[in-house]
C-alpha cells in the first residue's frame, strides 16, 4: 500500500471550495461598499440627528 501524503500547494480541497470562497469574498466586498455608501449618505446630511455633535446647537435665524 502506497500512501500519497505529500503536501501539495494546491490541494484538491482548495479547488472544491474555490467557488464558495469567491462568493464569500464578493459578499464581503459588497458589504464594505454598502457600509461606505450609507456612511457617505448619512454624513452628507448635517441636520441628521444621528451624527450631530453632542454640543451642537442650531444657529438662530440661519437659513436652511
Amino acid at each position: 500500500m502506497v500512501l500519497d501524503m505529500a503536501i501539495q500547494p494546491e490541494h484538491e480541497l482548495h479547488t472544491r471550495r474555490k467557488g464558495r470562497n469567491k462568493a464569500v469574498g464578493l459578499i464581503l466586498g459588497g458589504f464594505v461598499v454598502i457600509v461606505f455608501a450609507v456612511s457617505i449618505v448619512k454624513l452628507s446630511k448635517p441636520q441628521n440627528e444621528d451624527f450631530r455633535a453632542p454640543n451642537f446647537s442650531p444657529v438662530v435665524g440661519a437659513s436652511e
Partner: peptide, 17 residues
C-alpha cells in the same frame, strides 16, 4: 488507502448555492 478511495468516501462539500 489511496487518494482515489479517499475521494470516494469523503462527505459532500456544501456549495454556496
Amino acid at each position: 488507502m489511496s487518494d482515489a478511495t479517499f475521494t470516494e468516501t469523503r462527505q459532500y462539500e456544501a456549495q454556496f448555492s
